[in-house]
């Protein structure tokens, strides 16, 4: 990854003073050419980006047109555009409802817990794997840790339920063998969040670590060699070389995770839910599902409004964290 302007890590460290000066004239020259000419000039690039743009339009932007039903009383007769306009009625109804605060709290607590627990572990795993000298061993560990990512959520929940079964569960039996009375993993509302978050960490940590491993591979070995000559220990080298190298990527991933903070894994929560843990397991998504469909007529508008409300909060959080990140670490999404 070493290019003429230095490698990735060097770029982070040094601000090239002469680069902007070199670039400016070219940009000015570009601006004088017409858009059409510029498109023609590099049509290959636009062709490459076309599928992605099409995907975005079809699956991300076009469906946004349907969000308007959150402000209407949707009926199949009126359709998306012809149903009665009710403005913010559905939003007020949700915010004033009996369940609003418990739902918001459950959603946020679960999401933040997941974020905090799920963020450092892949980094630690990547650092550890990177430090292992025996490549064979590190590959095997990597394979084992990232394979759970490919198991479907339904299967994972099935496994959790089996492993933690109060009568037949291996985990419960193992705990009993060493003399610990196993807690009611699946029914205690206090345990729901731990089970949810840590099974998620188990499932995704290995896969998330791959990104960090890629970033670590761009760290020039000379830096490590020089540090070794200076007598730096493993931990010292991690702290002063590896971590600064992956910090920008870590920040970007953190911001991305904050963006999805409000959309906690719907399927998994629903599958792990039972009447006894409802106090902590009822989140906005599962509520939308139950209220939207469990009704003499499906409440599409109300469900969409709650979903939109959740997305807006997610967006606000995303912007806030992005702003903070730019302030503090000078790295951000936009």
């Amino acid at each position: 990854m070493t290019t003429e302007s230095g490698n990735f890590v060097d770029q982070l460290r040094f601000d090239d003073d002469d680069k902007p000066a070199r670039r400016k004239p070219r940009q000015a020259e570009q601006r004088t050419r017409s858009l059409g000419a510029r498109l023609r000039g590099s049509w290959q690039l636009y062709l490459l980006v076309l599928p992605a743009i099409l995907w975005l339009i079809v699956f991300a932007y076009w469906p946004m047109y349907g969000i308007q039903i959150a402000f209407r009383n949707y009926t199949p007769v009126g359709g998306l555009t012809g149903s009665e306009w009710v403005g913010l009625d559905h939003f007020t109804r949700f915010i004033e409802s009996h369940n609003f605060w418990p739902l918001l709290r459950n959603t946020l607590v679960l999401a933040i817990y997941e974020l905090i627990a799920g963020f450092p572990i892949p980094i630690i795993l990547a650092l550890a794997l990177n430090a292992v000298r025996q490549k064979y061993f590190s590959r095997v560990v990597q394979l084992i840790t990232y394979s759970p990512n490919f198991i479907s959520v339904v299967v994972v929940v099935g496994m959790i339920v089996m492993l933690m079964d109060p009568q037949a569960g291996i985990v419960n039996h193992a705990l009993q063998l060493i003399g610990i009375e196993p807690p009611a993993f699946l029914t205690d509302p206090g345990w729901f969040r731990h089970v949810y978050v840590w099974s998620g960490v188990w499932q995704t940590a290995g896969f998330s670590a791959i990104i960090y491993l890629a970033a670590l591979s761009s760290v020039p070995p000379e830096l490590h060699e020089a540090a070794k000559v200076d007598g730096a220990s493993h931990l010292r080298r991690m702290w002063h070389i590896d971590i600064p190298a992956i910090l920008p990527i870590a920040m970007v991933l953190l911001i991305l995770n904050v963006g999805t903070i409000m959309s906690v894994g719907f399927e998994k929560v629903l599958l792990l839910q039972n009447p006894i843990n409802l106090a902590t397991s009822q989140v906005i998504d599962t509520y939308v599902y139950q209220v939207g469909l469990n009704s003499p007529i499906p409440q599409y508008s109300y469900a969409t409004a709650i979903g939109l409300f959740r997305s807006v909060i997610g967006l606000v959080l995303l912007l806030a964290v992005n702003h903070l990140s730019k302030r503090i670490t000078k790295a951000g999404l936009f």
């Binding site: 991300a60 076009w62 469906p63 946004m64 047109y65 349907g66 969000i67 039903i69 199949p76 359709g79 998306l80 555009t81 991305l256 963006g259 999805t260 409000m262 959309s263 719907f266 998504d285 939308v288 599902y289 939207g292 599409y300 469900a303 969409t304 709650i306 979903g307 939109l308 959740r310 997305s311 807006v312 997610g314 967006l315 995303l318």
Partner: peptide, 21 residues
């Protein structure tokens, strides 16, 4: 991303929307 987050409700609306289109 927020869009992705909202995929379930949007999908439903989207299906109806595409039907209309």
């Amino acid at each position: 991303m927020t869009l992705h987050a909202n995929r379930r409700t949007v999908l439903k609306a989207g299906v109806a929307g595409l039907g209309l289109a």
